[in-house]
């Protein structure tokens, strides 16, 4: 037992001694499980720079960011991709990232740049939007977020618990962004009176939606702007496509950043630059079904065919989110359980 312990300590010391100050040519990209790019994407990067990339995933975005905060300063990887504007402030406050001004940032519109210190670099953007099937609503489609509280859409709307679901949280933020600190509770009281259904996650909500699988009887569901794209590309022949209630769309921007504590900040920075390069940016839509933020990137036609343009998405400043999220969700919970 004692000998084993001594051996372990010796091995650990040896391992510590081996890690020098040289930058490593092997970079680890830490991300969530939804991260996908076309095969060969990182081989191209290796060919260009001589740096190999290992992609390591760890749960969903929430778990990924929580783990990054917990291991801040001693990270599991070198670059993290997958923190979004909903989680951003916490990650910044948790000292997860170090500053890196990415090449190509000039081609990114300012509304995506949420950290003045460039600790994170925007990579893609998507929208959480209310989807509906006009044909299943007796022809009377909702035309605005306000319509969801109208009696003709009673018991038709299904959304998710903001405590356990990112789209659920985004929709709560959408109502706060629309009705303000003083108005959102009344809106939700009306939704509740109108028979809103709340599930814990997206999958259960979609299962109760008429356009879902296996499909339920709800005509309106809180989902993504990309949902019609999925329906179009993966719905077989003659797919039925949902419509989008565009004034409910809340922007979800995903960022990448160099992790605080990496041994290879420069090489890690090169990988962030690569993620922002027009080639990778153009690869994003058909793999992760979100839009690139680099205006130089070309959006594939297949994606554009079904994608609904969202011209004026809702948003809240990350600092406001971090400061108020716990209170808002608590108030929301109490309101719905009244």
């Amino acid at each position: 037992m004692n000998r084993l312990f001594v051996l372990l300590v010796a091995l650990m010391l040896a391992a510590a001694a081996c890690s020098g100050s040289e930058e490593s040519d092997n970079i680890t990209l830490l991300t969530h499980e939804s991260f996908v790019l076309s095969e060969g994407t990182f081989e191209q990067f290796t060919a260009d720079t001589g740096i190999t990339v290992e992609v390591v995933s760890s749960g969903d975005a929430g778990a990924l960011v929580a783990a990054a905060i917990a291991t801040s300063g001693d990270p599991v990887g070198d670059v993290l991709f997958g923190v979004d504007n909903l989680l951003l402030q916490r990650a910044l406050d948790g000292d997860v990232f170090q500053a890196h001004e990415a090449v190509g940032l000039d081609d990114v519109p300012d509304r995506f740049k949420l950290d003045a210190e460039n600790r994170v670099t925007p990579i893609d953007t998507g929208y959480v939007c209310v989807n509906y099937r006009p044909e299943d609503l007796g022809g009377s489609a909702p035309s605005s977020i306000d319509d969801l509280r109208q009696p003709q859409f009673a018991s038709e709307f299904i959304t998710q618990n903001p405590e356990s679901s990112t789209p659920g949280l985004a929709f709560l933020f959408a109502t706060i962004a629309t009705y303000g600190e003083d108005g959102w509770q009344d809106y939700w009281r009306d939704l509740k009176a109108n028979g809103v259904t709340v599930t814990s996650g997206w999958t259960e909500a979609w299962a109760e939606y008429v356009g879902g699988d296996p499909g339920g009887d709800k005509g309106i569901v809180n989902s993504y702007a990309s949902s019609p794209v999925f329906e179009g590309l993966f719905g077989g022949e003659n797919p039925t496509i949902s419509s989008i209630l565009t004034d409910t769309c809340f922007a979800q921007i995903e960022f990448a950043g160099v992790l605080n504590g990496t041994d290879s900040p420069n090489n890690a920075g090169l990988l962030v630059d690569y993620l922002l390069s027009p080639e990778v940016q153009a690869d994003i839509p058909l793999n992760m079904f979100v839009e690139p933020v680099n205006s130089q990137a070309e959006v594939p036609a297949e994606f554009a065919e079904f994608a609904v343009p969202v011209s004026a998405p809702l948003s809240l400043p990350p600092a406001d989110i971090a400061a108020n999220q716990a209170r808002w969700t608590q108030e929301w919970l109490e309101l719905l359980r009244e």
Binding site: V56, T203, F230, L233, G235
Partner: peptide, 25 residues
């Protein structure tokens, strides 16, 4: 909650990925 390489992507992870989006197929 563990970090794992893409080469060890498992069936439950794939199922979650597949049921996490619309699209009948």
């Amino acid at each position: 909650f563990l970090a794992r390489g893409r080469s060890s992507y498992t069936a439950p992870q794939a199922i979650f990925g597949l049921i996490g989006q619309p699209g009948a197929s």
